[in-house]
Design a protein around this nucleic acid. Structure first.
Lengths: 125, 125
DNA sequence: ACCAAACGTTTACGCGTGTAAATTTAACTT
DNA sequence: AAGTTAAATTTACACGCGTAAACGTTTGGT
């Protein structure tokens, strides 16, 4: 897979839906998004179109409804966003980044245990 | 302190220098940055000017040299960037964010211990 | 066969940002 | 006092992105 296309913030709202459930029709996407955002349907169609041009999604048409599928995986998106954030803000220092987030934000006990488990696993390598 | 001003990526390169050492003259800033970036001195002056207008930095002039000081602290910057990244990409789920970073990126043994210590402290609250 | 609805495509526009040239202002030098 | 220089300030411009209207096209209904 080549470089995944750059997905902007607004576009990512569309992608988030498709990562939850795939495929979705234009209708469904527009309906869902209009509950959260103040976007006109034309605006959402613009995002669908741009995502399509970037090869971030594809569609299949059956009759007059189009069904949309993600072409970029959520995981690839997260990886790319993580890397660019890490480099941009922390110059690549993961330790610092995690420390800052752990300090500032609240975590459930369950989260804490999961992270401890991850760290323990990490030590064996 | 009100909302800290939005600092763009390019501008943040200037800020990073000022967070390391304060104050710095225009000369010093321009020299330093031109070693890392392909920026003309005019470009850098634009950033200084924009940062000043935003109240992200201030300067004192003594003779013909201007000395620049940050007005936004590194910590406030990190806090703001963290929050927006966390919300934008992870919908606020810190646990998920940290887990992803820990999975993907390399950590020194020392980093790991520090993080474990942080988590332990976190559990007592 | 034609109309209307549903959907994609094209065009548009203002603002932020990266990039930098042109202009003004202040101050050291001679 | 005037000229030169260093620095700030103003202006400029293209491109990405959020936002959306206008236009084109396909297809189910009558």
């Amino acid at each position: 897979m080549n470089e995944p296309p750059r997905i902007t913030e607004a576009e990512s709202e569309v992608m988030k839906l498709l990562w939850q459930k795939e495929p979705l029709s234009a209708q469904e996407i527009i309906h869902e998004l209009q509950e959260q955002m103040e976007w006109s349907d034309q605006t959402i169609k613009t995002f669908l179109n741009r995502l399509h041009k970037k090869n971030a999604i594809r569609f299949e048409k059956s009759g007059r409804t189009y069904l949309y599928y993600p072409l970029v995986s959520h995981d690839d998106y997260l990886k790319a966003e993580n890397r660019s954030f890490l480099d941009r803000v922390y110059n690549g220092a993961v330790g610092m980044l995690c420390a800052k987030f752990l300090e500032e934000e609240k975590l459930s006990d369950h989260d804490i245990e999961e992270l401890e488990k991850l760290l323990r696993k990490k030590k064996q390598s």
